[in-house]
Write a protein that binds this DNA or RNA. Structure first.
Lengths: 312, 312
DNA sequence: TTGTAAGCGTTATCAG
DNA sequence: CTGATAACGCTTACAA
């Protein structure tokens, strides 16, 4: 292009305030306008916002933008969002599937769109035609490690507070808990399991229930950051009443865990890594990667801070 | 449409796996595909993720999706993102402007796109052609209230830890601090101001500096949640060394503030409300609202929890 | 260098 | 109810 002409063009662009329409642009040459979609539970939960941030960052490095949408564990909303996103022809989709959703239903919806599942694999009631990439945490291993740690401190009655077992991660973590007790030759007292609480308020109530049992647990395992916060609230209230200490190990690290009166021992992992690896895998697929569906499992690590080392 | 024909159509849709292309759809009838853009500092910061979540929720109620992008306070990146989003013809843009950006430059970029500024007003070095809507917190009032509270406890030397004064909210909060001291007839000791720290590590270091002065402050005011966390780390370390208590009031509430060994007194506000009101205003504009540019200021509130009531 | 035409996937309009 | 046609704003190709 000649320099003189170019200048004249730029001049006119400025004069008319012309802005290229990237929608039309991408429509023309087939590929979508450099967009990824992310469907998660709740963007306000630091676990999810870390995933979103990391995915957004990977996308940004490649000039892509990320549309993030919260489905609040509602399969109906999830379906709507997935449908909306695929209709917009996002180049790829990162999906933290909602509890109870059947993703065989989504096979049709997702046909033609690259998808990577994060944190939880797709749930298929019916046999699915398609196999998906998935990036997970080592839920079983982490929960097992945390439980073993409590057992090693001498605890025999370990209360468990977890989300509904319909949730993949909750079920896996419960399995880890059971495996650790079995390996130690301990019976599982089913009365010590409280599977259902989804937010901190419910976890707080469940904790009070457990500790009010005739034969209460001497230690607690909480299966995610929301539930740890709820349990901590309950423990703080009881401690104010002069109750004796209860050990606590929580799945998920969280900010200020180390500054609490009794610093919280946690099963730590890098939740941002879920988003990062997921996005990278998605880009690899977009670039033509033809490997069979991947199942990436990220490690967890026990961080001893005090609350997990309380004696029975 | 006849029922029989409709059935035949749906059948064919399923058979061919047809998915409507919403990009082409919106191209056809002029309006963009029901999308809002949000440019913020860092999605991983709970202050911002609360904004994003609320905006996303308001958008979702109206069938819109939200593209969220973090600019990390980099004016260049902000400009890129704004340009990218307007090129995609988002219907509206929510903007938390980056520190140091000159938004007169963006006037051209933003022409033809509805914009609402959040948390900070646009900065114009040159005179701007356009006036923008803006939703802010009562930064001056909040910081003033927090400082007054410390003064009322008898504190005369109050250290201040804030982000760079180039940042609108930081400058306003410093102004509130100065106003409170002036009203109380107290001199401002400039050596007690540490304006610059942007993350918790820097705030931690600044706190150690302040408390190591020959004549250290007996109280601290931290100007945002990141800085409060840093200061708390420093105070916890000093307390472990047997140092005597320092009062602390922090701008922004944060999770677990009430469960720390010394529960943290904060200047609370509803950061989600910034996103909610901003998005609602944007939709009002899209619906044809022609009122002059709005300036909405959200209230703050002092929450006394203990750390702000430590005596000098 | 400039101009013209076709087509991306829709939808609106207007015959048949 | 079916079918043809034009247009949204852009890119690509080819001709003038």
């Amino acid at each position: 292009v000649g320099a003189a002409t170019a200048a004249r063009v730029h001049e006119t662009i400025a004069a008319l305030g012309f802005r290229r329409n990237d929608l039309a642009r991408s429509l023309r040459h087939g590929r979508s306008s450099a967009t990824l979609g992310l469907v998660i539970g709740d963007l306000a939960n630091p676990f999810y916002s870390a995933i979103a941030r990391a995915a957004e960052q990977v996308a940004g490095e490649r000039g892509y933008l990320l549309i993030t949408a919260s489905c609040e564990e509602d399969p109906g909303r999830e379906r709507e969002l997935v449908s909306n996103l695929t209709s917009r022809r996002v180049d790829g989709l990162l999906l933290v599937p909602a509890t109870g959703a059947d993703h065989a239903d989504l096979d049709a919806e997702l046909a033609g769109t690259r998808v990577v599942f994060l944190d939880r694999p797709p749930a298929h009631r019916a046999a699915s035609q398609r196999r998906y990439d998935v990036v997970l945490l080592d839920n079983v291993g982490g929960a097992r490690r945390g439980t073993e740690h409590l057992v090693a401190q001498g605890h025999r009655r370990i209360g468990l507070i977890g989300d509904t077992p319909a949730l993949f991660t909750a079920a896996e973590r419960v399995a880890g808990y059971r495996a650790a007790l079995a390996a130690a030759g301990l019976e599982v007292d089913e009365r010590l399991l409280r599977l259902g609480p989804h937010d901190d308020a419910a976890a707080e109530a469940a904790t009070h229930e457990l500790l009010s049992l005739p034969d209460p647990p001497s230690a607690l395992l909480t299966l995610n950051n929301r539930l740890s916060v709820g349990a901590l609230r309950a423990l703080a209230a009881r401690r104010a009443d002069g109750a004796r200490g209860v050990a606590l190990v929580g799945f998920d690290d969280f900010e200020l865990a180390d500054l609490l009166p009794l610093a919280v021992t946690v099963i730590r992992h890098d939740s941002a890594e879920l988003g990062r690896r997921g996005a990278e895998l998605l880009f690899a697929r977009l670039a033509g990667d033809q490997r069979p569906p991947q199942r990436i499992v990220l490690p967890t690590e026990l961080v001893e801070r005090g609350s997990g080392e309380v004696a029975p």
